[in-house]
Amino acid sequence: MIFIETQPADAAALAQEYPSGSVERETIQILAAGSHRYRYASEDRLRFELTLRREIVHAARALGASGLAFATFRRSFCNTDYWERMPDGGFAVKTGVNPADAVRDILRSSHRYGTECATAMLMVYYLALAEVFPERAFREVFRNIYLMNWHRIEDPLREVGVMRHTGDYLPGDRRYFKNPDVEPTTPEYQGENVIDLGGGLYYGHGAGIQRAEALIRMLNQNRRADADEETYLLPGVARPNFARLAALLDRYAPPASLPA
């Protein structure tokens, strides 16, 4: 159930504002029927979350359709015009480069990038945030972008690295397929980080846009010879702290300036 401050929101009316089949409408419907009370400080805060979720899903779909290659950290590569490849295989924005330009280049020159699935998830989040945050706000809020799985997340995005049990699954959530019996010499297949695209579809880097069964099948093919455990989808989800990101954005732009 959705609450704005202390009052229940008119979820049906809110949903009507968005096209049928849209990320926003699906999100509202799940929140409204959800197992928790979802509280928002204002309707604008709810709309911010809906917008960012939509952009996360769009970014995931765009990255899924791009030429971004799958590469282990040892063989990761990036466009060195914008990024510095670090000794651990991660990418840091080069000094003097506008972070939003560096992030957008991942889609623009996708064939010049290759990395693992967790780092691709961070790329999705930053691509989405670059659409929602105006240039100056993005530059000032996300000063230390370091793309390297969940090991080095800058503070404004730290929650995307932590999986929690929520009971409800929303478009734009990050989830994880775990392959406990992975072949030891290919630990990169120990699991697949995915973005929930809604409608039972997931984007996982290297796997593309798939249903859960297809992702499980793919990871099962990378198990050790005497494996006895199947790949499974973990129950937890990871989400950005939408309220904190909205508050950060408010410092730079009034809510009305959110992209429609």
Binding site: C117, V162, M163, N193
Partner: peptide, 10 residues
């Protein structure tokens, strides 16, 4: 637990 950096930051 089998938890690892590929799955979570903590």
């Amino acid at each position: 637990t089998g938890e690892f950096f590929q799955q979570t930051s903590q």
